[in-house]
Amino acid sequence: MKSALFLAIVLISGFTGGVIFGFINFVTTEPFLDSAIELENKALFESGEEKDGPEFRAEYNNYRGWQKSGMVLAGGILGMAIGSLFGIVFALSRKILPGKHEIQKTLLLSGMMWFTVFMIPFLKYSANPPTVGDPETVVLRSILYLSFIAISGLGAVGFYQIYKRLQSKKIAAFIGYAIFISIIFVIMPPNPDVVSAPMDLVNGFRMMSAFSVSVLWLVNALILGALWQKFKPDVENSDIRN
């Protein structure tokens, strides 16, 4: 395999998907983030910690401007990170993935990874807007979230190994994973924080977050599949002259 080409197409796919993900967030999650932070501001005014006025608003707009300005860059970085994980798994599993076209293969793998390392953990530990989340529990919540992603992802790999070894009734591997992850889902502690924000805000944000992240997985898979099909980094051509 051509290493440099392989690296380049994986990173370009991930970065491009991430940048698109970042731009999409300006119309999907960003309005909810603004609403949630405005609720935090309201609480500050009511408690007397801050006073609303031009001075506060100037500082606030500056602060929010910095946060918003990072959306696309952070999207690109996160896209490269997720794209790298996807590239590793794709390179190792490509030959056994069904499909004639590379895009068929990347879409199938992306769907499986989206479900196991994003959607299942998301259902247990859903995204939350600002105003939800006690700073005292952020380490615990981070550990729980990452652990669930790792357990679900590694569980899927483990049950794939079982799937390969089964001579018949391969569906047992899928059922086994479903039972395994259901047990983990129940056993894992819930998010310890109480949600006091309006639920229409929280649920709207969660839906937009899930949609936007799903776009990242889709776009990354489409671009990687298209680039792999075009450049074929796993094929080496050599001229032999007699």
């Binding site: 970042g22 967030n25 999907t28 999650t29 960003e30 983030l33 602060y63 910095w66 946060q67 918003k68 300005s69 990072g70 959306m71 860059l73 952070a74 999207g75 970085i77 996160l78 994003f118 953990p121 998301f122 530990y125 859903s126 995204a127 939350n128 807007p129 600002p130 989340g133 700073p135 952020v138 919540r141 981070s142 979230y145 944000f205 937009m208 977050s209 936007s212 992240v213």
Partner: peptide
């Protein structure tokens, strides 16, 4: 943290 703040929430990471 502040630069990645909005993406952190949007991508589902626990933030604060």
């Amino acid at each position: 943290h502040e630069l990645t703040h909005d993406m952190r929430h949007a991508a589902g990471f626990p933030c604060h």
